[in-house]
Amino acid sequence: MKLVVVSAGLSVPSSTRLLGDRLAAAVGRDVPAEVQVVELRDLAVEIAHHLTNGFPGKRLAAAIDAVTGADGLIVVTPVFSASYSGLFKSFFDVIDKDALTGRPVLVAATGGTARHSLVLEHALRPLFAHLRAVVVPTGVYAASEDWGAEGLDGRIERAAGELAALMRGLSTARVPARGADGFEVVPFEERLAALRA
């Protein structure tokens, strides 16, 4: 399986990237996955050019392919003006509106204060609901005081477990389910349609 982390952190080192890495590591403990990180900071110029001319550069096209081909996504943004960063939004603006339909997504954000934690519910979740992605129930927000404090690890593990479960569920949905006796399990609606034909 392929897990892609989209990080919109601007600094090096970045707490946004650190949160993405910790979430990816937690998902990897639950489900075997090849992890790829897309650093939006490195794609800023290509994203701007795509918005103005309609054509992605080579690195941006590769990033879009990675995101749209992933079995699961972790998206992490710093909070600017009580919302996701403009760079983060611009990246998802250049992706086809139907490309993330049904894709499991874990939303996360970082900020200087806990007062911005509702960005997950008021900005990130609606964005990915609009893109018809499947957003895991638990989002992870990390304020400056959360690093090294009690509670962040538990939120990371819970959210990662939810994403891993969705990724496992979607991968098994692609192959016919088989019971313990080896017989193929066919959904009732399919069996009924076959009988009517």
Rank of each mutant, 00 (worst) to 15 (best):
G179W: 04
L152D: 09
M167S: 08
A180W: 12
G182C: 03
G169L: 08
L118D: 12
L120P: 07
L100C: 05
V186Y: 10
R178M: 08
R155I: 10
G148M: 06
G86D: 10
D153F: 00
L120R: 04
G151D: 14
G111I: 07
A149K: 03
R178H: 09
H122E: 00
V119W: 14
V94M: 01
A108Q: 02
F128C: 06
V185Y: 11
L152R: 11
L131I: 10
A159C: 11
R115I: 01
S144H: 10
R155M: 12
E184T: 15
S85R: 06
K89E: 02
G148V: 06
R125F: 01
A164N: 06
I95L: 02
G139V: 09
V175N: 08
F128P: 11
G111M: 03
A173G: 12
A177N: 02
P126A: 08
G102C: 11
L118E: 12
P176G: 13
S117V: 09
I95A: 00
D93H: 05
V175P: 06
A149I: 00
V185Q: 05
G169F: 11
S144G: 14
E145R: 03
L118P: 10
V175I: 14
F88P: 08
T101D: 14
H116W: 03
L118W: 10
D181W: 07
A133T: 03
D96G: 05
R174S: 12
R178P: 02
L100D: 05
S90Y: 08
G154V: 02
T113I: 04
R155F: 09
V135K: 02
G179F: 00
A194N: 11
A109D: 06
L87T: 01
G102I: 13
D93I: 07
V186C: 08
A133I: 03
V186A: 08
G169W: 14
A142Q: 00
V107E: 01
T110P: 00
L120H: 11
G182Q: 01
A160K: 08
E121K: 04
R191M: 12
A108D: 05
L100A: 07
G148C: 08
Y141H: 01
L192Q: 15
E190W: 04
T138A: 07
L106G: 06
L166V: 06
G161R: 13
A114D: 12
D181N: 11
R191C: 05
E150S: 09
V134M: 08
L166D: 04
E184F: 11
G182R: 04
D146L: 00
P187L: 06
A143V: 03
G112R: 07
T138V: 11
H122V: 00
W147P: 03
D181H: 09
R132P: 03
R158W: 02
H116L: 03
A143L: 01
F183A: 15
A159Q: 11
S144P: 02
R174G: 15
H130I: 07
R174Q: 14
A129E: 08
G179S: 13
G154T: 01
T113N: 09
A108W: 07
Y141E: 01
G161E: 09
A133K: 02
A129Q: 12
A133F: 07
D181T: 06
A129K: 09
V175T: 15
V119A: 12
A149H: 00
G179C: 00
F183Q: 15
H116F: 06
L195W: 14
S117R: 09
W147I: 00
L87I: 01
A165L: 13
L192K: 15
P126K: 10
V105I: 14
